[in-house]
Computed example of a mutant assay.
Amino acid sequence: MNTPEQSQLGKSSAYVDTYDAGLLFPLPRAAKRAEIGVGSTAPFFGADLWTGYELSWLNLRGKPQVALAQFTIPCETPQLIESKSFKLYLNSFNNTRLADAGEVKARLRADLSEALWRGQAPGASMGLNLVLQEQFDAQAVHELDGQLLDRLDVECTHYTPAPELLRADHDAPPVSETLVSHLLKSNCLVTGQPDWGSVQIRYSGAQIDQAGLLQYIVSFRNHNEFHEQCVERIFMDLWTRCRPLKLAVYARYTRRGGLDINPFRTSHPGALPPNVRSARQ
């Protein structure tokens, strides 16, 4: 079983520029989920929405091609892909001759599906879309919708996750709200490098105290954990502390190494949010 310490994170890496699926480094989700009280059946659905901004290959005449790649990785997969290995893998296409974008997609889909489901029969399928050059101008930039928590003038004293800051008024009538903050920051689990993000919390149920919620989001500032794990921790803390009837947590992190990761977790199945980048991405 792979561990984060065995990955290429924080190590000097040779950049392989010919196709090599073996560069992908899957990591099991189960151990970090066990830390936050998630058993064999998770109380959430969702996916990790990745965008690769640095995808390139050669056509059969040796001419470089470029595209954006959008990946939708179901949270049901037993593995996640460590992001530096993902970057190294995508770079391995750089000097590889391929017939067309269709062949690129086929290789991406096959390699990633194998890594994500390694050791298990494949379940939910991975989504994949290539945005070609002629489609670049149609790509939108949009901030997360919702009431901005950052407007609140709060004192912040916690910089590691403090779920005790979360509270909800169960004596008042239930509400439905969408709340947003751009003050989410955590650090890479292995290297400690900063990860910057925005988070959207959509819920129905007892009204969550907004000041405490903002202080809780800020409390991730010195926390070391991967993007997907932070979002699941936020979901579970809200789910257990505030006991909403419905809950969805969506974070968009700024890119690193040409990749951004945007995890979405929801208590009820439904449509995924559109993978539209924000200004900081």
Rank of each mutant, 00 (worst) to 15 (best):
M1I: 08
N2V: 02
Q6V: 01
Q6L: 08
S7K: 10
S12G: 01
V16M: 02
Y19R: 09
Y19C: 08
D20G: 09
L24H: 02
F25C: 00
P26I: 01
L27Q: 03
A34N: 03
E35V: 04
G37V: 03
G39Y: 13
S40P: 10
A42R: 13
P43F: 09
F44I: 06
D48T: 05
L49T: 04
G52S: 06
Y53S: 14
Y53P: 13
E54P: 08
S56L: 01
L58I: 07
N59V: 04
N59T: 02
N59D: 15
N59Y: 04
L60A: 13
L68S: 14
L68H: 15
T72Y: 05
P74G: 11
C75W: 00
P78C: 13
Q79F: 03
E82V: 01
E82K: 07
S83I: 02
S83G: 14
S83C: 11
K84I: 02
K84D: 06
S92Y: 12
F93M: 11
F93K: 07
N94K: 09
N95L: 14
T96D: 00
T96M: 01
T96E: 00
T96V: 01
A99T: 12
D100N: 15
E103P: 03
V104D: 01
A106F: 03
R109N: 09
S113L: 11
A115F: 01
A115M: 08
A121E: 12
A121L: 10
P122S: 09
A124H: 05
M126I: 12
E134S: 07
D137W: 06
Q139I: 12
E143G: 13
E143L: 10
L144R: 15
L144T: 12
D145P: 08
D145H: 10
D150A: 12
R151C: 01
V154R: 05
E155N: 07
E155C: 03
Y159V: 12
Y159M: 04
A162L: 02
L166G: 15
L166K: 14
L166A: 14
L166V: 11
R167D: 10
A168S: 13
D171A: 15
A172K: 05
A172L: 12
A172Y: 09
P173D: 00
E177H: 06
T178C: 10
T178V: 15
L179D: 07
L183D: 13
K185H: 13
N187C: 13
T191L: 12
T191F: 11
G192N: 07
G192M: 11
Q193T: 13
S198K: 07
V199C: 03
I201D: 03
S204L: 01
A206M: 04
A206L: 09
Q207W: 01
I208W: 00
I208R: 00
G212Q: 07
G212N: 02
L214A: 08
L214F: 10
Y216R: 02
I217R: 09
R221D: 15
N222I: 00
H223W: 09
H223N: 10
N224W: 15
E225W: 07
H227C: 11
Q229M: 14
V231W: 02
E232Y: 04
F235V: 00
M236Y: 07
M236L: 04
D237K: 08
R243D: 07
K246R: 09
V249M: 04
Y250T: 14
R255I: 11
G258P: 02
G258Y: 07
L259K: 05
I261R: 00
N262C: 06
R265S: 03
T266D: 03
H268S: 00
P269Q: 06
L272K: 09
V276C: 13
S278R: 11
A279R: 02
